[in-house]
């Protein structure tokens, strides 16, 4: 019984000295952090500060020049930078999820909503049409898309619906770690609010760990437990979200926080 109350203090993802150069330019340099199970980490910074580079390196879309990305797989901690590509891609389909800013990058636009949600299930060996469809309907419901839209293509969906569909497609295999690249970018504020609400409840319900890259401080205020501020490829400040936003120490963070328009 005691185990139930023990906090899991081993990190799910442990990043050490991650560096990526584009020729002589710095993409991101010497980034280190730990992410614990159930924790949401926000990465903020201006355009060109290396947020997306960092996320791509973490998610295995890009190979970093230096550093380790140690993920706690079911068989123990593994460095995802050096693991075989087949294994990394399998993990990207099962344990990880990646939500793109533009749903067109993350969805198959020529395939129906049900097919989009079912793709990951089929990729890990789902071969029963009825089961796949039932699961797709269940997940469309969870992201507030009506079940009768299951055979419509994403083209017929609004921007907000496409983004919700992308989230359903990613979460259907029950990943443990979700990478999000500006998940609310390009949506109007009311749709953003609903999406944030949905994301927050899904993250809490499923006990997901997430890394959210954004330049919208309101998004991290709502979703993130911890915050990392990047500038010029370097992490300039990190800490608890409220702490960083309410009492920024670094001059760039102060600038960032004070740039937000108050309505």
């Amino acid at each position: 019984m005691t185990a139930l109350f023990q906090l899991d203090d081993r990190p799910l993802l442990s990043v050490k000295g991650l560096t990526k150069h584009y020729g002589s330019r710095i993409g991101c340099a010497d980034v280190s952090f730990d992410l614990f199970p159930g924790e949401v980490l926000g990465i903020v910074g201006e355009s060109g500060s290396g947020k997306s580079t960092l996320l791509s390196c973490l998610a295995g879309h890009m190979t970093p020049d230096q550093g380790q990305v140690i993920f706690r797989t079911t068989d123990g901690p593994r460095d995802t930078v050096t693991m075989a590509e087949a294994e990394r891609r399998r993990m990207a389909r099962t344990d990880w999820a990646f939500v793109h800013q533009n749903p067109r990058d993350g969805l198959r636009m020529g395939v129906s909503a049900g097919g989009n949600v079912g793709e990951r299930l089929m990729a890990i060996g789902g071969r029963h049409y009825g089961d796949i469809r039932a699961k797709a309907i269940d997940w469309l419901g969870r992201v507030e898309i009506a079940a009768d839209r299951i055979d419509d293509r994403p083209r017929a969906f609004s921007g907000g619906m496409q983004q919700r569909l992308q989230i359903a497609r990613n979460l259907v295999t029950g990943p443990r770690l979700v990478f999000m690249d500006e998940p609310t970018g390009g949506l109007d504020v009311s749709v953003q609010a609903r999406l944030l609400d949905l994301l927050r409840s899904l993250v809490r319900e499923m006990g997901l760990s997430a890394i959210i890259v954004t330049h919208d401080l309101a998004v991290v205020r709502l979703l993130a437990d911890r915050l990392m501020v990047m500038k010029g490829g370097h992490v300039v400040e990190q800490g608890l979200t409220d702490q960083v936003l309410d009492d920024p120490q670094h001059s760039y963070t102060q600038l960032l926080v004070s740039s937000v328009l108050q309505v």
Binding site: R89, S112, G114, G115, M122, Y129, D151
Partner: peptide, 18 residues
Amino acid sequence: ELEEYGLMHVKLYEDIAR
């Protein structure tokens, strides 16, 4: 190369759905 053939079944899924 990596035997990732889930996508082939997406095509068949689309057939049945339609």
